[in-house]
Design a protein around this nucleic acid. Structure first.
Lengths: 221, 221
DNA sequence: TTTTGTGAACTAGTTCACAGCT
DNA sequence: AGCTGTGAACTAGTTCACAAAA
């Protein structure tokens, strides 16, 4: 089954039974806690957190309880400590290196995109098969390599995440190369269904489906 | 409640009770049917469609049955006719005009992105508040206007969909301007929670949350 | 008293399985 | 016989509500 924008991987280990929705909310909680920290709030209840950021307090507690007991009954959660815990759970307490395959407009834009470059991620390389692009650098200085050097550079630069921004026609082939190169996590922007090996994670961001879904809703409004 | 990448709008009309997952699958079905059409397949059963594209046959039938009876018992679905029906249901049988607000790297890349420019969508304008960008054109020729002319140009160009690609700090303000300008559908790339008016649709594509979710899964693998 | 952590209830979404049409 | 359309069963995800902890 190929849900749009769902992580597809056969669950097998109970540790993996964390739903994607829960995982995504952890990121949201980190953002909320960072905002509160900036305001000097050092403790917060799930109730207050929910009110401030339009969330559900029971869901916050349930999400957090999946990973441990971080709160104090009668008091709430310590803002800084909880944030650090969540950052650790998300694996963002160390830098994760990212390769973008497809140095076209979208790939280059993402390579220089602030949201990708900050907060625990580092875009280490772009890849392409176009001789005109190979050897150049993105505006922010990310080098463009020959796609044939993917496995080599992934190993050399300790890259863990691949982002596919090639045209649909090339995406399956590129995805195979990512998995061969040892990338265990891939974010795919191509409007194509990819089949990851059982030990790899795949997330799809299908921009066209997003637009078409909006079209659907306005068409029937 | 702010689900990442969920269309947020209070359901009120039974016609609107189509889940976002179902709406997204309609796009997938159109793609599958287009591929089959290209191969000259003129009829297909839900069973066969499911096998070919890794879907579930009961889900296909249920999704389609939401909108009418398109199949013939004992036979299946007529490829071309079903595709046309779905395109019509998705509102893609006429061109929808799109404005991108934020003419930075990401906005410009999306303006020229094939997936956005083809198949029923037309990027009619980019908007920015940076004098250096206003008056220029994207590589594909999309003009960059002053954000202050948003309402004017939305009306003039009959733009229906807004895409927000400004930094987080500007996103709420820009979203408000979109709704004031009469845009009823907004695709938001800024990592910020926006509150659409009750008659507007909002879809979020949070690239950072996507990367963080992948980080989460590899961290615990 | 306040607020967590969590079983129970509820809601949404998916898949099964079959009556009924072609 | 073959396949759709759909109620029923199932599964996943969310929210409620309260016992237990501080």
């Amino acid at each position: 089954m190929s849900r749009n924008s769902a992580v597809s991987r056969p669950a097998r280990d109970p540790r993996e039974s964390v739903s994607e929705a829960t995982a995504a909310r952890l990121s949201v909680y980190v953002r909320c806690l960072a905002a509160l920290e900036g305001e000097g709030v050092d403790h917060i209840s799930s109730q207050e957190l929910a009110k401030r950021f339009h969330l559900n307090s029971a869901q916050i507690r349930k999400d957090l309880a999946t990973f441990g007991e971080f709160g104090t009954r009668g008091v709430g959660y310590a803002t800084g400590a909880l944030k650090r815990h969540l950052i650790s759970i998300l694996g963002l307490d160390r830098t994760r290196r990212v390769a973008i395959i497809g140095a076209g407009r979208l790939g280059s834009a993402l390579a220089d995109y602030g949201g990708f470059r900050s907060g625990g991620f580092r875009i280490a390389a772009l890849f392409d098969n176009d001789r005109a692009r190979i050897g150049s650098k993105s505006r922010a200085g990310v080098p463009v390599h020959d796609i044939r050097r993917l496995a080599e550079i992934v190993a050399l630069e300790k890259i863990e995440i691949g982002v596919i921004t090639v045209p649909a026609s090339a995406a399956s082939e590129v995805a195979r190369k990512c998995w061969e190169a040892g990338l265990k996590a891939v974010l795919n922007f191509a409007p194509v269904r990819l089949d990851p090996p059982p030990d790899a994670f795949l997330k799809n961001v299908d921009l066209k489906i997003n637009l078409e879904t909006l079209s659907f809703y306005i068409a029937r409004a």
